[in-house]
């Protein structure tokens, strides 16, 4: 009975502290004193821009997709200064161009490969816990997850290389900063043939901009870049569309390619 009273009193105090006009936030986020990034966010992987036209019984409807999460936003409050492209060391620029010129054959993502970080972009769903963040993704290559501790720990010593890296997070004001290292070398960090080395370090920043999730990534790889590259920020709308298992990926186009056109030429 005493225990029940104590719980009741604690709830009453917490309710009074919140104030009657404050929207309830998840307990974990509120307790930690950080912005609430949890939720389901718009699917932001590149999709064809086409729309579907349905005709039946003399009626016609057209429905398109919301590709806003894929595009870079013009001005996002809180974003770091960015540049459109990374700066490679002069002796490596020809390699980047060659990879890009032959992307239909050289980009592993075109062959069901994992995009890695940061190419996969922002997660579809974020679960925010007091000492860790859980990121859930939907991708053509499969549906990866990332569990990111935010309890102050540092990276593991010599993490095994992986596509999505070894991540730790921390809060800088209202921004969640996720640092990832320990990547395999076969991914690109952008569609322009942006290869990297095993020294790549990716810093992703997540913050709220109104109802949206703001996302911006910085790639640092001193073995291949002349300076860290911060890419333009993106704004991701909230979504009510539940996550769904991505179908198996079966690449079957490579054998039909007759030239090296890349998709920017369509």
């Amino acid at each position: 009975m005493k225990k029940q009273l104590t719980v009741f009193a604690a709830v009453a105090v917490l309710t009074a502290a919140l104030g009657a006009d404050q929207a309830p936030a998840p307990a974990a986020a509120r307790a930690a004193g950080h912005p609430d990034l949890s939720g389901t966010w718009l699917f932001s992987i590149d999709l064809p821009p086409t729309a579907i036209k349905r005709e039946a019984n003399g009626a016609s409807t057209v429905k398109g997709i919301d590709a806003s999460g894929r595009r870079t936003a013009a001005a996002v409050p809180g974003a770091l200064p960015s540049t459109p492209e990374p700066s490679y060391k002069p002796e490596l620029r020809a390699k980047v161009k060659d990879l890009f010129d032959h992307e239909s054959r050289t980009d592993a993502v075109f062959y069901c490969g994992k995009p890695g970080v940061p190419r996969i972009g922002p997660p579809r769903r974020i679960v925010q816990l007091p000492n860790e963040m859980i990121f859930l993704y939907e991708d053509i290559s499969g549906d990866p997850y990332r569990i990111i501790p935010t309890d102050g720990r540092s990276h593991s010593k010599d993490p095994n290389p992986s596509y999505y890296g070894h991540a730790v997070g921390r809060w800088e004001g209202n921004t969640l900063v996720v640092e990832s290292v320990g990547f395999v070398e076969e991914t690109w960090f952008g569609e322009g043939g942006y290869f990297h080395s095993d020294a790549m370090r990716v810093t992703e920043r997540f913050w709220r901009s109104g109802e949206n999730l703001a996302y911006q990534a910085t790639v640092d790889d001193p073995k291949v870049l002349t300076a860290p590259w911060t890419m333009p920020a993106r704004l991701i709308k909230p979504s009510t569309e539940p996550l769904e298992e991505s179908p198996h990926c079966v690449e079957q186009d490579g054998k039909f390619l007759v030239n090296d056109d890349h998709h920017g030429q369509r």
């Binding site: 590149d46 821009p49 086409t50 053509i140 490579g254 390619l257 007759v258 369509r266």
Partner: peptide, 18 residues
């Protein structure tokens, strides 16, 4: 016509007569 079909995958013009 050439602007679709388009996707994040291989070039359409490298494979299909659009």
């Amino acid at each position: 016509l050439a602007s679709f079909p388009a996707s994040a995958h291989h070039s359409t013009t490298a494979e299909f007569d659009v």
